[in-house]
Write a protein that binds this DNA or RNA. Structure first.
Lengths: 334, 334
DNA sequence: ATGAAAGCGCTAACAT
DNA sequence: ATGTTAGCGCTTTCAT
């Protein structure tokens, strides 16, 4: 049987309030009693029951996280940042993988409500009304990571997707490429998808290459689909010399396809990725990519949620962190 | 303010006990009252407070998971299996990333205790006495995944590491290789390390190649270290034609090193990995590897923990799941 | 079949 | 400075 506050009190020869005080307001209790209580706590390995505390404080010090795909390295980086922030701020984190399944996501929100999480972090997926209503109906505060919402006033932290895409494509243009194509997200709920297409188009237009801006093939999130998309892309636009991919995993799929067709990367075709997942530097060739500060994004999103919980509001609603171009081996001058 | 059972009772015009009954023993309450209560619950979006429930049942229906590195794809696969099992059995999962830091791990155990998780799953790391004592001291039931313990009687689910390594090396031998080397785990706390070395040695001995069995260089868990280890390995044993790696990530590191030295894989050197992480099929060349059933291991470990929680014991203490060799492109006949 | 009331472990207001 | 007690939201006797 787990020891309770009563056991500690008995052992230390004091009342339960005194025990409670040494835990919550140590300086209101005399030295000797405090020491005795501390000793009893130590001996019994006592830890206050968080159910009882939760009942009183109405706080669980637990945060919920909803991510689309835990096998995607992008989220692994974000999670590390979140966990460190949680440790700093005294929260536990409940990570739930939705597998991009709407029903599953909704069920997790129910679970969060039941477990009384203090707040939730919603990653990447588009905040459709159904999700919003449910969260709002339960009055669960939440923030968005690598996503944002203009319909609703929800705090978010992300990267500037349009600018990231623009920088990637501009880099390709500066390398001398003139036949540039793109692999985008075909997920209609992708929030990063449209701005990255716009960034692609803007860089192209600026260089007088607007005739390329329709050269986009869409793929859903994984390597295999990007591989297939690459096939389609090179069938449609065979003279392409550079491909901008909206995810590193897409870049790997494209390179893999090219490799199977004995087309050299970067010798004949240059490829740029997006995210800078840990694998990007391990792939052959190492990926040139637009890096997102994943760790920091995770960290900030927890801090932001905490701010929201603590003060009821947030200084800056839509926060953007800096991306940067990392040039490695998958690109070359034309 | 969240609605309580009292709000529901008032709205339905019954006592709180009746409300409680419709939730816990629906058939003991008359049709019409039950319906009224259900309606009230619906209207108020009432969900019982899990703190209050936890206080009574002394159960949180939450499980804790301790993993060494969430950025390692191996764990991502395991986690997916765990989450599905948790959904089936009605648990929530609290995933904690230890970064292989002992203090951090210990702190998470404290957090688990405080949050009263029903049980914990301990992944990969060796169960050192310190961990065991803490968990046992708190009386938290737990199981091990991709690990085991002979000192303590703790349920575990893993793969047969010795046999997996043996199969990998045997395959290399059958391919005609005679100069075989290995990259192992240098982590003294690795539980998979020693048996994989033994499997390596056994396959070698069986083929009269025992003079190779010292050809091992050790690396710590990541790509970069395997890259460096490969340098060391080929400096020491330059005529090596095949390398057995105890992790796919090591295999990638080795291949990357070889690539940088313009040594062809599998043309000149064959490489086998271990795990079959999702990246294994995406790498160039695609990795030949010993596949672990990660999803199933995760799933089973949760079921096993549940069995332990529900019955106080477990049918089979040390459970082993089947590995299998997957031949792809990183190996070739000598 | 239903309601009243005790009690789970804790905190905080109130007494002393 | 310390103890006594009400009450957080729920389940579960115990009456009725």
């Amino acid at each position: 049987m787990k020891p309770t506050i009563r056991d500690v009190a008995k052992r230390a020869g004091v009342s339960i309030s005194t025990v409670s005080r040494v835990m919550n307001a140590p300086d209101t209790v005399t030295e000797d009693k405090r020491l005795r209580v501390l000793e009893a706590i130590e001996e019994l390995k006592y830890q206050p029951n968080s159910f009882a505390r939760g009942l009183i404080y109405r706080k669980s010090y637990t945060l919920g996280l909803l991510i689309p795909d835990i096998e995607n390295l992008y989220y692994a980086g974000i999670i590390r940042g979140m966990q460190d922030a949680c440790i700093k701020l005294g929260y536990s984190l409940m990570i739930c993988n939705t597998d991009r399944d709407e029903g599953r996501l909704l069920a997790y929100i129910d679970a969060f409500h039941e477990k009384q999480v203090d707040g939730v972090i919603f990653a990447s997926d588009k905040l459709i009304p159904e999700y919003y209503e449910k969260l709002a109906g339960y009055r669960i505060p939440f923030v968005l990571v690598s996503s944002h919402s203009y319909e609703y006033e929800v705090p978010s932290v992300e990267v500037d997707d349009e600018a990231g895409a623009y920088d990637a494509v501009k880099f390709l243009i500066e390398l001398g490429h003139r036949k540039i194509a793109m692999i985008g997200f075909n997920d209609p709920n992708s929030v990063a998808g449209p701005p990255r297409c716009r960034g692609f188009a803007r860089a192209l237009a600026e260089a007088g290459l607007e005739h390329n801006s329709g050269n986009i093939v869409f793929a859903s999130h994984r390597f295999e689909h990007a591989y297939d998309a690459a096939r389609e892309l090179f069938a449609k636009y065979p003279d392409t010399t550079a491909v901008f991919c909206v995810a590193d995993e897409f870049a790997m799929g494209v390179i893999s396809y090219l490799k199977d067709r004995s087309i050299l990367v970067p010798g004949q075709v240059s490829v740029v990725g997006f995210d800078n997942v840990r694998m990007a530097g391990m792939f052959i060739p190492k990926l040139t990519t637009i890096a997102q500060p994943m760790y920091e994004m995770g960290y900030r999103s927890v801090e932001k949620l905490h701010e929201l919980l603590a003060t009821g509001r947030v200084q800056v609603t839509r926060e953007r962190l800096q991306h940067r171009l990392i040039v490695r081996e998958s690109t070359r001058e034309k």
